[in-house]
Simulated assay, not measured.
Amino acid sequence: MDVDSQPSMEETILVGDDLMLGPPSPHIPPDIAPHVLEGVNLCDGILRNLFLCLQINDIEPFCQDEIVLYRQCAERRDNQLRDRLRHSEHKLGLVMPLEQAKEREAQLLTETTSLERRMILASGIEGIEGFRLRWSLHGRLEDTRYISQDPY
């Protein structure tokens, strides 16, 4: 295989669907959202610039810098949110009475089972909408599994 035949990053044109390569942003329960979201850069300014670029230029190849900046910011944000979410769930489990902690664990396992079933149903949906649904469900399923199997 010739190394020169591989396109470099400068030759690669990213499109909007490239933003969906990793897992989607984590689903944050409303009861702990204020604590988890506090002080996190939500990338809304970068996203606004990306949409403005797309509106002005009408096609993605002219907005490569904005796509890359948003992708990097979103990855940092999502990693930070997942860490905070995991720590919040751990702290919540430590202060809860044992019965409530067991109920919470059962609730997370039920949600995991429900998401797995929805994934199976979504696997039959063709096209971009099916892809987006599977992508979203996969991210929520992985996050729920990760929380329910807290490594702490």
Rank of each mutant, 00 (worst) to 15 (best):
V3Y: 07
D4A: 02
S8K: 07
S8H: 03
M9V: 11
T12I: 15
L14P: 02
D18F: 10
M20R: 15
S25W: 01
P26V: 00
P26W: 01
I28F: 05
P30N: 06
D31P: 04
I32P: 04
V36I: 05
L37H: 12
C43D: 01
G45V: 03
G45K: 07
L47P: 03
Q55S: 12
P61L: 05
Q64E: 05
D65T: 10
D65E: 11
I67S: 00
L69H: 06
Y70I: 04
C73M: 13
R76P: 04
N79T: 14
E89T: 04
E89A: 09
E89Q: 10
K91D: 13
G93E: 01
G93L: 01
G93Y: 03
A101D: 06
A101W: 01
A101G: 00
R104Y: 02
A106W: 12
L115V: 01
E116V: 03
E116Q: 14
R118N: 00
A122E: 00
A122I: 00
G124F: 13
I128G: 05
G130T: 02
R132G: 09
R132E: 13
L133S: 03
H138F: 15
G139C: 03
G139W: 00
R140A: 07
R140S: 06
L141T: 08
Q149Y: 07
P151T: 07
Y152E: 02
Y152R: 04
